[in-house]
Design a protein around this nucleic acid. Sequence first.
DNA 1: AGCACGCCGACT
DNA 2: GTCGGCGTGCTC
Length: 805
Amino acid sequence: MKMEIANVIVDVPAKQTDRAFDYLIPAEWSGTIQPGMRVIVPFGPRKIQGFVTSLKTQSEFEKLREIIEPMDLEPVLNKELLELGDWLTEHTLCFKIFAFQVMLPAALKAKYEKKVKLAQGVEASVLSEPLQILFENNLMIDWEDALKQGMVPLLLKEAAKGTLEVIYIVKEKVRKKQRKFIRPLVSLEELKVEVERFPAKAEKQKQVLSYFTDHFEPVELRQLVAEVKTTSATVKALVEKKLLIEYDMEVYRDPFEHRTFKRTKPLPLTNSQQTAIGPILNAIETNRHEVFLLYGVTGSGKTEIYLQSIQEVIERGQEAIVLVPEISLTPQMVNRFKGRFGDLVAVLHSGLSAGEKYDEWRKIQRKEVKVAVGARSAIFAPFENLGILIIDEEHETSYKQEEMPRYHARDVAIERAKTYSCPVVLGSATPSLESFARAQKKVYHLLSLPSRMNNQALPAVEIIDMREELRDGNRSMFSRKLLDMLKDRLEKQQQSVLFLNKRGHSSFVMCRDCGYVMNCPNCDISLTYHRVNEQMKCHYCGYESHVPHQCPECSSDYIRYFGTGTQKVEDELGKILPEARVIRMDVDTTGRKGSHERLLTDFQNGKADILLGTQMIAKGLDFPNITLVGVLSADTMLHLPDFRASEKTFQLLTQVSGRAGRHQLPGEVIIQTYSPEHYSVELAGTQDYDLFYQREMMIRKIRHYPPFYYLSLITVSHEQLMTVVAATEKIVNYVRSQVSKDAVVLGPAASPIPRINNRYRYQCLIKYKREPNMTKMLKTILDQYQKDTKSGLLVSIDVNPFILM
DNA sequence: AGCACGCCGACT
DNA sequence: GTCGGCGTGCTC
């Protein structure tokens, strides 16, 4: 008999275990265990989860251990996704286990438990005194609990004697939701006869049967009991009489259970929409891979193009993935897809619970839906016959994952589309420079939607120089012009949106006398104020401290919490426009689940005149009554140490401006700034993407940045400053020796966050055009440092980084 | 990552 | 003489 052996990638993210291990498939599982399944395997003394990547009949290893059991009935990763995992590993230089895990809902990540129980045939009475009571009352005790109570040494002693046994348990994070269903076991006719024959005494049973003669179909037990006003005992009696049968069925947690979606029909396309959709439909019909850049201002009707392309894909029996930035997964976007395709849509976003996400994923896996709409990770939706992949707001930085695997959803989309030979559509009003440059070079197919639907004019944008306001004695955060206009809208009963673009997204505490800012003692970064428990917290290492009442530096009492800024704006608004009703949206007011949505609905229903918020209100707002948008300070993010700062500023300002006047009423935009002459502010004012593109490209070329150069960032960290500097220097020298002379190697330089969790951070930035050996070289570096754990050096590499930190 | 194995200092 | 510190190396 031929042995069946499985190659298994184990759930241990470390350099040394980042390879396949061979396991025997026990005879009882022979033929059922397939590539793509999760299995439980013994690994050293433990039990852990692993992914079967392939099967074979021979192994170089003599003494193979057996797979304990499969965790799935069918593979969770199909062949394509397994191969995509290889691709991810290669391109982002991550451990294979990370590549597999990122493709699955978090619910499928294993949970490990370590427990201690009495060994076979051992009585609790033989144990030492303190353990006796414990094991008389419990079958097993948790290792973590024992550790907290300091009992581990005792346990180990017993384990050495053989009276106790340590066991490892691998668990699923979330259970499938099963419900009991009841259906008739006999025909309708027989059932009718039975109802007549039933003695009057068994009144309730008779009623249950009558229910089925009226509704001859399965019904959930819970519902049946409620409708007939009986108990499950009655039903059980009928099941025992073999008239009914009970069975379990997997049900889905439906996050949209209490919402109805108005069905929509395809809208007639404008001429320019028709011109744009043509090539996409052609690619779908001819089964051709091509990347389209759909470039159209806000309100130009990109979504309808997505919808009608998907329609075509569905009609051809294929499937579609649509990515939208997390923040715009507000009901508005979901409504449009659910409205058009109803139950054929699965929605995956972070607002769902792990269980809900798993259920949506299952719908895709079981081929019950045709469209997946979701944030970044939805790009891994387990479809097997993809016809189109769409990325809306293509320029959004949230499509790049900043943890391992550091992938960009756009790259994954293109890779999957190549396998399925189908089109990718990247949509944006302000495409990323990378994408637009590729479109210029005809690598992507550029499709333009030059005008807004119904030919509405773009809002009139006015840039206000806040320095001038200051010179004229206006020290408030509202320019006179903006204030006038706010008053005007209030009178007209129209709505305004005020946008505060602040640096970063944390609130901090600063002394107003000496400028002291509370920093983390372990990391070189300011502490974030948490209103909930009145504490200061570090985002990087978790350090917590109380909010000081006096400045530790100068003992001043004027040490204040600088909120997101929105609080301050709200207060000031209250003073100068007391009659205005304001809704504030920021991390403080949208913390709870669903509050984001509720605030927006309130605003939509006219419960406020002004919506005040941060980043999160820049997208997805499309309310007819908004006629004024004010940007309070346009330039705060311009001065970040980020080569994309101008691009981000331009995109954000353009996007915010697009919120105004999307319907009948014309819109106006006020942008307040301290650097009105900066091209990204100025050109956002005239909404001139093309000119911005040209200006920014020139700068990128001179500075050797994308899209002219690729980037790879190597970050080294260690507790000792000298050690990091030395190691980084060594790496820099090695890199210099390996790359061609066209490449630019920067470093060693301190990272923009020079210390996290008491580890100093240095980096090396490589800018390059064509380096065939780049991946190989980076792998060599990682190999060197990941293998050698004793030096304490940590090296991480981000290929095509978005944040240079 | 865990965990075992193994080799040197402070204790019954 | 042992208990226990954590350095080193393996897990099919």
